[in-house]
């Protein structure tokens, strides 16, 4: 598989009053045009990894890597101009809550059109047409009405569809979805992920799905990378998740309450200090 993303020994540190705090401690993985899930609990460094790839971390953060490449482009050495071409151009980012990532005083149509214009040549009318097509592609039932709505007039699930449409406008090669459905109801969650999955497959993009929800990720991805405390614990095909070897992955799967099985007490995760050792 041709390598779309190559990460080798990525380390990210954030400054604190008492020295640097390691958020990512030497992780390596690669991905092609596939669906990769990055799973971990809060503080595992999963979001930081996605952001490091887009160079979206605050300037105070210290990012080092033997290699951090997107389709051959060295992200750490690239110029700001090159990065602007990547961000929102070849890499799209979908964040958790559409409420905060859409501009509240601009209609949905304008925002998608802007995104399209930033990376395509054409006039206002073509941009609007493109926005309409995109809204149709993200399966919004009444795209003409939504086009002229403001973000507060649409529901959370609809907002997330609009975000996806915006990210698809420049025809990216990779979509990074950072907890794209955590703010949504379970029923909407499934629809949105199905939509992302379909679009990614149809357009032959890569998908990096960052989430805390192990079963969810395994349902929608080909491969899963499990992170803990800034390191990769385990990397495995999603369908083999129930055969996971690592105690951390097992622990995460076991400690969830289940609707089908009744248990008086939930097994809790015992954090082995050995997991923290550099690997």
């Amino acid at each position: 598989m041709s390598s779309l993303v190559e990460i080798r020994d990525l380390r990210v540190d954030f400054p604190t009053p008492s020295g640097f705090n390691a958020a990512v401690r030497g992780i390596s993985f690669g991905m092609g045009r596939e669906k990769l899930g990055i799973v971990g609990e809060s503080g595992s460094g999963k979001s930081v990894t996605g952001r490091a790839l887009m160079r979206l971390l605050p300037s105070a953060a210290r990012v080092r890597a033997q290699a951090l490449r997107f389709d051959g482009v060295d992200v750490l050495a690239a110029s700001e101009r090159q990065m602007r071409g990547l961000r929102g151009g070849r890499i799209g980012l979908i964040m958790q809550d559409p409420k905060y990532s859409l501009n509240p005083v601009m209609t949905v149509g304008r925002q998608i059109a802007e995104a399209w214009l930033a990376h395509n040549k054409g006039g206002q009318r073509e941009a609007r047409e493109a926005a309409l097509t995109l809204l149709e592609q993200v399966k919004i039932r009444d795209p003409r009405r939504v086009l002229d709505s403001y973000p507060h007039e649409i529901s959370g699930g609809m907002g997330q569809r609009v975000m996806i449409a915006m990210m698809l406008a420049p025809n990216p090669d990779l979509l990074i979805a950072d907890e794209p459905t955590s703010a949504l109801d379970a029923s909407v969650q499934a629809e949105i992920l199905k939509l992302i999955e379909d679009l990614v497959s149809a357009r032959g993009m890569g998908l990096m799905l960052i989430s805390h929800d192990l079963p969810l990720v395994s349902r929608f991805c080909d491969r899963v990378v499990v992170m803990y405390s800034g390191q990769v614990m385990e990397e495995l095909p999603a369908r083999d998740l129930h055969r996971a070897q690592h105690a951390y992955t097992r622990g995460l799967l076991d400690c969830m309450p289940s609707l089908s099985v009744r248990r008086d007490r939930l097994p809790t995760l015992t954090r082995d200090p050995a997991w923290l050792e550099p690997r």
Binding site: E41, L214, L252, C255, P257, R265, T268, L269
Partner: peptide
């Protein structure tokens, strides 16, 4: 909360 923490809190509540 994270699922591992959720398990602890649910046990505590029980």
């Amino acid at each position: 909360l994270d699922v591992s923490v959720q398990a602890e809190v649910l046990n505590l509540l029980a």
